[in-house]
Protein backbone atom coordinates (compact mmCIF):
# COMPACT_ATOMS: atom_id res chain seq x y z
CA UNK A 1 0.00 0.00 0.00
CA UNK A 2 2.87 2.31 0.73
CA UNK A 3 3.44 3.15 -2.93
CA UNK A 4 -0.24 4.08 -3.58
CA UNK A 5 -1.13 7.71 -3.24
CA UNK A 6 -3.07 8.85 -0.18
CA UNK A 7 -6.68 9.72 -0.92
CA UNK A 8 -7.96 10.56 2.57
CA UNK A 9 -5.59 12.18 5.03
CA UNK A 10 -6.80 13.19 8.46
CA UNK A 11 -4.39 14.90 10.83
CA UNK A 12 -5.15 15.92 14.43
CA UNK A 13 -8.87 15.78 13.71
CA UNK A 14 -11.10 16.83 16.62
CA UNK A 15 -14.87 16.83 16.71
CA UNK A 16 -17.19 18.05 19.44
CA UNK A 17 -20.94 17.68 19.93
CA UNK A 18 -21.46 20.56 22.32
CA UNK A 19 -19.17 19.68 25.20
CA UNK A 20 -18.86 16.07 24.19
CA UNK A 21 -15.50 15.22 22.63
CA UNK A 22 -16.55 12.73 19.94
CA UNK A 23 -13.29 12.49 17.97
CA UNK A 24 -9.96 13.00 19.69
CA UNK A 25 -6.86 13.88 17.73
CA UNK A 26 -7.49 11.47 14.88
CA UNK A 27 -4.58 10.74 12.52
CA UNK A 28 -5.48 8.42 9.70
CA UNK A 29 -4.50 7.95 6.07
CA UNK A 30 -6.40 5.94 3.49
CA UNK A 31 -4.56 5.19 0.25
CA UNK A 32 -6.03 4.75 -3.16
CA UNK A 33 -7.39 1.23 -3.55
CA UNK A 34 -7.03 0.48 0.16
CA UNK A 35 -9.69 -1.46 2.06
CA UNK A 36 -9.93 -0.26 5.61
CA UNK A 37 -12.16 -1.82 8.23
CA UNK A 38 -13.01 0.19 11.33
CA UNK A 39 -14.38 -1.47 14.43
CA UNK A 40 -14.88 -0.59 18.05
CA UNK A 41 -17.56 -0.51 20.72
CA UNK A 42 -20.80 1.40 20.34
CA UNK A 43 -20.39 5.13 20.79
CA UNK A 44 -16.68 5.07 20.03
CA UNK A 45 -17.05 7.55 17.16
CA UNK A 46 -16.84 5.24 14.12
CA UNK A 47 -19.86 6.74 12.38
CA UNK A 48 -18.80 10.25 13.27
CA UNK A 49 -15.40 9.66 11.71
CA UNK A 50 -16.59 8.34 8.38
CA UNK A 51 -19.37 10.92 8.24
CA UNK A 52 -16.64 13.54 8.38
CA UNK A 53 -15.14 11.94 5.27
CA UNK A 54 -18.13 12.96 3.16
CA UNK A 55 -19.21 16.13 4.89
CA UNK A 56 -22.26 14.85 6.75
CA UNK A 57 -20.41 16.03 9.86
CA UNK A 58 -17.65 18.61 10.15
CA UNK A 59 -14.51 18.45 12.24
CA UNK A 60 -13.82 21.35 14.59
CA UNK A 61 -10.05 21.35 14.32
CA UNK A 62 -7.27 19.55 12.54
CA UNK A 63 -7.04 19.05 8.80
CA UNK A 64 -8.80 16.73 6.45
CA UNK A 65 -7.48 16.37 2.93
CA UNK A 66 -9.48 14.36 0.44
CA UNK A 67 -8.01 13.66 -2.95
CA UNK A 68 -5.52 16.48 -2.52
CA UNK A 69 -8.06 19.12 -1.48
CA UNK A 70 -8.41 20.33 2.07
CA UNK A 71 -12.04 20.32 3.15
CA UNK A 72 -13.72 22.18 5.98
CA UNK A 73 -17.20 23.48 6.66
CA UNK A 74 -16.63 26.82 4.95
CA UNK A 75 -15.07 25.37 1.85
CA UNK A 76 -17.43 24.97 -1.03
CA UNK A 77 -15.81 21.86 -2.48
CA UNK A 78 -17.69 19.34 -0.40
CA UNK A 79 -20.54 18.83 -2.80
CA UNK A 80 -18.13 18.17 -5.62
CA UNK A 81 -16.32 15.85 -3.28
CA UNK A 82 -19.43 13.94 -2.41
CA UNK A 83 -19.46 12.89 -6.03
CA UNK A 84 -16.11 11.26 -5.30
CA UNK A 85 -17.12 9.75 -1.97
CA UNK A 86 -20.15 7.49 -1.82
CA UNK A 87 -21.82 6.30 1.36
CA UNK A 88 -23.90 3.27 2.27
CA UNK A 89 -25.96 3.53 5.43
CA UNK A 90 -27.07 1.05 8.03
CA UNK A 91 -30.73 1.84 7.32
CA UNK A 92 -30.33 1.77 3.48
CA UNK A 93 -32.11 5.14 3.13
CA UNK A 94 -33.51 4.38 -0.30
CA UNK A 95 -35.98 6.92 -1.67
CA UNK A 96 -39.32 5.17 -1.04
CA UNK A 97 -41.31 7.20 -3.57
CA UNK A 98 -39.06 6.20 -6.46
CA UNK A 99 -38.65 2.82 -8.12
CA UNK A 100 -35.35 0.99 -7.85
CA UNK A 101 -34.33 2.22 -11.29
CA UNK A 102 -35.33 5.80 -10.46
CA UNK A 103 -33.38 5.59 -7.19
CA UNK A 104 -30.31 4.78 -9.23
CA UNK A 105 -30.98 7.29 -12.00
CA UNK A 106 -31.69 10.40 -9.97
CA UNK A 107 -28.07 11.07 -8.97
CA UNK A 108 -26.62 10.57 -12.45
CA UNK A 109 -29.36 12.76 -13.97
CA UNK A 110 -29.53 15.60 -11.47
CA UNK A 111 -25.95 15.71 -10.28
CA UNK A 112 -23.85 14.26 -13.07
CA UNK A 113 -26.16 15.76 -15.70
CA UNK A 114 -26.41 12.60 -17.77
CA UNK A 115 -29.31 12.21 -20.18
CA UNK A 116 -32.13 9.90 -19.18
CA UNK A 117 -30.85 7.26 -21.59
CA UNK A 118 -27.29 7.39 -20.27
CA UNK A 119 -28.52 7.37 -16.69
CA UNK A 120 -30.67 4.33 -17.31
CA UNK A 121 -27.78 2.53 -18.96
CA UNK A 122 -25.58 3.29 -15.94
CA UNK A 123 -28.32 2.23 -13.55
CA UNK A 124 -28.89 -1.10 -15.27
CA UNK A 125 -25.17 -1.76 -15.41
CA UNK A 126 -24.77 -1.40 -11.65
CA UNK A 127 -28.01 -3.20 -10.89
CA UNK A 128 -26.47 -6.13 -12.76
CA UNK A 129 -23.34 -5.73 -10.66
CA UNK A 130 -25.33 -6.21 -7.46
CA UNK A 131 -27.21 -9.12 -9.05
CA UNK A 132 -30.78 -7.81 -8.99
CA UNK A 133 -31.51 -6.60 -12.53
CA UNK A 134 -35.03 -8.07 -12.29
CA UNK A 135 -36.04 -5.70 -9.45
CA UNK A 136 -35.62 -2.53 -11.52
CA UNK A 137 -39.25 -1.49 -11.61
CA UNK A 138 -40.24 -2.29 -8.04
CA UNK A 139 -40.51 0.17 -5.20
CA UNK A 140 -38.00 -0.28 -2.36
CA UNK A 141 -40.71 -1.37 0.07
CA UNK A 142 -41.31 -4.47 -2.06
CA UNK A 143 -37.71 -5.67 -1.64
CA UNK A 144 -36.06 -7.65 1.13
CA UNK A 145 -33.55 -5.89 3.37
CA UNK A 146 -30.61 -7.51 1.62
CA UNK A 147 -31.92 -6.45 -1.77
CA UNK A 148 -32.53 -2.92 -0.53
CA UNK A 149 -28.97 -2.64 0.73
CA UNK A 150 -27.65 -3.89 -2.60
CA UNK A 151 -29.73 -1.23 -4.36
CA UNK A 152 -28.22 1.34 -2.00
CA UNK A 153 -24.72 0.14 -2.96
CA UNK A 154 -25.64 0.35 -6.64
CA UNK A 155 -27.02 3.86 -6.08
CA UNK A 156 -23.61 4.96 -4.80
CA UNK A 157 -21.80 3.14 -7.60
CA UNK A 158 -23.90 4.97 -10.18
CA UNK A 159 -22.15 8.16 -9.13
CA UNK A 160 -18.88 6.48 -10.25
CA UNK A 161 -17.31 7.44 -6.96
CA UNK A 162 -13.71 6.61 -6.21
CA UNK A 163 -14.19 6.04 -2.49
CA UNK A 164 -17.00 4.13 -0.82
CA UNK A 165 -17.86 4.50 2.85
CA UNK A 166 -19.98 1.86 4.58
CA UNK A 167 -21.52 2.48 7.99
CA UNK A 168 -22.48 -0.90 9.43
CA UNK A 169 -24.09 -1.97 6.16
CA UNK A 170 -25.25 -5.35 7.44
CA UNK A 171 -26.24 -4.70 11.02
CA UNK A 172 -29.88 -3.92 10.21
CA UNK A 173 -30.24 -7.12 8.19
CA UNK A 174 -31.67 -10.50 9.07
CA UNK A 175 -28.83 -13.03 9.36
CA UNK A 176 -29.75 -14.90 6.20
CA UNK A 177 -29.35 -11.73 4.12
CA UNK A 178 -25.99 -10.61 5.45
CA UNK A 179 -23.96 -12.75 3.10
CA UNK A 180 -25.57 -11.54 -0.11
CA UNK A 181 -24.58 -7.99 0.81
CA UNK A 182 -21.08 -8.97 1.96
CA UNK A 183 -20.57 -10.91 -1.29
CA UNK A 184 -21.31 -7.79 -3.29
CA UNK A 185 -18.90 -5.83 -1.11
CA UNK A 186 -16.15 -8.43 -1.60
CA UNK A 187 -16.63 -8.22 -5.36
CA UNK A 188 -16.44 -4.47 -5.12
CA UNK A 189 -13.22 -4.74 -3.13
CA UNK A 190 -11.71 -6.98 -5.80
CA UNK A 191 -12.62 -4.42 -8.45
CA UNK A 192 -10.13 -2.04 -6.86
CA UNK A 193 -12.49 0.41 -5.16
CA UNK A 194 -11.15 2.34 -2.18
CA UNK A 195 -13.33 1.29 0.75
CA UNK A 196 -13.70 2.38 4.36
CA UNK A 197 -16.03 -0.01 6.13
CA UNK A 198 -17.38 0.26 9.65
CA UNK A 199 -18.44 -3.28 10.50
CA UNK A 200 -18.18 -6.03 13.04
CA UNK A 201 -18.24 -8.73 10.36
CA UNK A 202 -14.79 -10.08 11.05
CA UNK A 203 -15.04 -12.75 8.36
CA UNK A 204 -15.41 -9.98 5.80
CA UNK A 205 -12.54 -8.07 7.39
CA UNK A 206 -10.20 -11.07 7.19
CA UNK A 207 -11.13 -11.60 3.56
CA UNK A 208 -10.66 -8.09 2.19
CA UNK A 209 -9.10 -5.71 4.70
CA UNK A 210 -5.68 -4.22 4.06
CA UNK A 211 -5.86 -2.26 7.29
CA UNK A 212 -7.74 -2.76 10.52
CA UNK A 213 -8.59 0.19 12.74
CA UNK A 214 -9.84 -0.09 16.30
CA UNK A 215 -11.50 2.89 17.94
CA UNK A 216 -12.57 3.52 21.49
CA UNK A 217 -14.02 6.62 23.13
CA UNK A 218 -13.28 8.85 20.17
CA UNK A 219 -9.69 7.74 19.79
CA UNK A 220 -7.91 5.48 17.37
CA UNK A 221 -6.36 2.85 19.58
CA UNK A 222 -4.88 0.56 16.98
CA UNK A 223 -4.07 0.57 13.27
CA UNK A 224 -2.55 -2.62 11.93
CA UNK A 225 -2.62 -5.28 9.27
CA UNK A 226 -5.31 -7.95 9.69
CA UNK A 227 -2.68 -10.59 10.47
CA UNK A 228 -1.36 -8.59 13.39
CA UNK A 229 -4.78 -7.40 14.39
CA UNK A 230 -6.38 -10.83 14.77
CA UNK A 231 -3.39 -12.69 16.18
CA UNK A 232 -1.53 -10.25 18.40
CA UNK A 233 -3.16 -6.87 18.77
CA UNK A 234 -0.83 -4.50 20.58
CA UNK A 235 -3.46 -3.09 22.89
CA UNK A 236 -5.21 -4.95 25.65
CA UNK A 237 -8.51 -3.13 25.04
CA UNK A 238 -8.56 -4.22 21.43
CA UNK A 239 -7.90 -7.84 22.41
CA UNK A 240 -10.78 -7.78 24.90
CA UNK A 241 -13.09 -6.31 22.29
CA UNK A 242 -12.13 -8.96 19.73
CA UNK A 243 -12.69 -11.71 22.27
CA UNK A 244 -16.12 -10.34 22.91
CA UNK A 245 -17.31 -10.16 19.34
CA UNK A 246 -15.60 -13.34 18.17
CA UNK A 247 -17.10 -15.37 20.98
CA UNK A 248 -20.37 -15.69 19.11
Amino acid sequence: MSDAKPIIEATHLDKFYGDFHALKDIDLTVHQGEKMVICGPSGSGKSTLIRCFNGLEWHNSGTLVIDGIEVHEQSKQMRGLRQEVGMVFQQFNLFPHLTVLENLMIGPMKVRRLTRGQAEETARKYLDRVHIPEQADKYPAALSGGQQQRVAIARSLCMETRIMLFDEPTSALDPEMINEVLDVMVELAHSGMTMVVVTHEMGFARKVADTMVFMEQGEIVEVSSPDRFFTSPSSERCRLFLNQILEY
Binding site: N54, G55, L56, R79, G80, R82, Q83, V85, G86, M87, F89, N93, L94, F95, I106, G107, K110, V111, A152, R155, S156, M159
Partner: peptide
Protein backbone atom coordinates in the same frame (compact mmCIF):
# COMPACT_ATOMS: atom_id res chain seq x y z
CA UNK B 1 -28.22 12.19 4.26
CA UNK B 2 -28.65 9.78 1.38
CA UNK B 3 -29.50 12.58 -1.04
CA UNK B 4 -26.57 14.69 0.16
CA UNK B 5 -24.20 11.80 -0.12
CA UNK B 6 -24.97 11.44 -3.82
CA UNK B 7 -24.12 15.12 -4.19
CA UNK B 8 -27.55 16.70 -4.56
CA UNK B 9 -28.01 20.39 -3.73
Amino acid sequence: EAAKSIGMR
